[in-house]
Nucleic acid binder design. Structure first.
Ligand SMILES: [Mn+2]
Ligand SMILES: [Mn+2]
Ligand SMILES: [Zn+2]
Ligand SMILES: [Zn+2]
Lengths: 150, 150
DNA sequence: ATTTCATATTAGACATAATCTAATTGCTAT
DNA sequence: ATAGCAATTAGATTATGTCTAATATGAAAT
């Protein structure tokens, strides 16, 4: 997406397109690897304009609230972020913690008898296991069996 | 589950059944509300024996590694824990952050063309929205529409 | 062009969650 | 009893994220 597109995107969500906010959004769109807030802060400040740590956090909060960015909470580690482009699921590696996109497919919602009066906004599927780099060579199918159905 | 059952459970997983570890496991089994580490620490120390904060964290780590306990990472807030009893999904409230159990049902795994060489250990479904307490009275179905399929 | 004023940014202090360290204690096997 | 490993402990430390209060910015009104 080009600069004008990002600007449009922000303003459609009621957010002013400030240089700092633009940088965060732009960085996320060209770095699909689910960076942490610290990585985003570093990344946008490698080039001008300088943005402060607080502003990076503020803008990430605003972008998440506006639904343009997704925050993925990690056990023990720093949260990771991605621009909500095409819908997709996530794979999280047990060993290295890497977050990878998985092609989107529809997942059935819980039945209304389970949900009661709750109002559903979204369903999120997280697949866990070992990423390509962490799968041991000649992995025996015994040691880490692929689950059959879940 | 009775005391002997918990002891068995721990030892089957190669964990010694120490008083502190037992307390954590027992507390989680009788408090299904997804407590934080701090709440567990407080809870087990209301009665003897006294357990330290470090030990509470250590034992939670051990129990998660052994697959007896699940850790649910929360954006910004402290992680929450539950004893892995019957399989179930989770509902997380956008507003108050409460984690609630949702009846389990099978969710289709990603196809092997998406997974590549990755090895899947589990698929986790997280439903997000407003919990019963946070749904506004006479909620108009316009303001927060139930997603049709996801 | 100037004023106005809500919004955004900033540095750094602060808060919270989680981990680490090094000393001690408790088990279990011999 | 002794040895040796595992577990616990208090407190320090790190990591992550939030808050504050002062300043800057930009869009709208005059
Ligand atoms: Mn993603
Ligand atoms: Mn649960
Ligand atoms: Zn990995
Ligand atoms: Zn709620």
């Amino acid at each position: 997406m080009d600069a004008q597109g990002i600007k449009q995107c922000l303003e459609d969500s009621g957010l002013r397109c400030t240089p700092q906010r633009y940088s965060v959004m732009s960085f996320l769109m060209e770095h699909a690897g689910h960076p942490t807030a610290a990585e985003i802060f570093e990344g946008v400040n490698r080039l001008d304009p300088r943005s402060s740590r607080a502003t990076t956090y503020n803008n990430l909060r605003d972008l998440v609230q506006a639904g343009l960015v997704r925050e993925v909470a990690m056990e023990g580690r720093a949260a990771r972020f991605d621009a909500k482009g095409a819908q997709h699921h996530h794979f999280i590696c047990d060993k290295c913690g890497k977050v990878e996109d998985i092609d989107w497919y529809t997942v059935p919602q819980p039945g209304s008898e389970s949900l009661g009066k709750r109002i559903v906004r979204e369903c999120e599927l997280i697949v866990r296991g070992l990423c390509t780099k962490c799968v041991p060579r000649r992995a025996s199918q015994n040691s880490s069996r692929v689950v059959s159905a879940v």
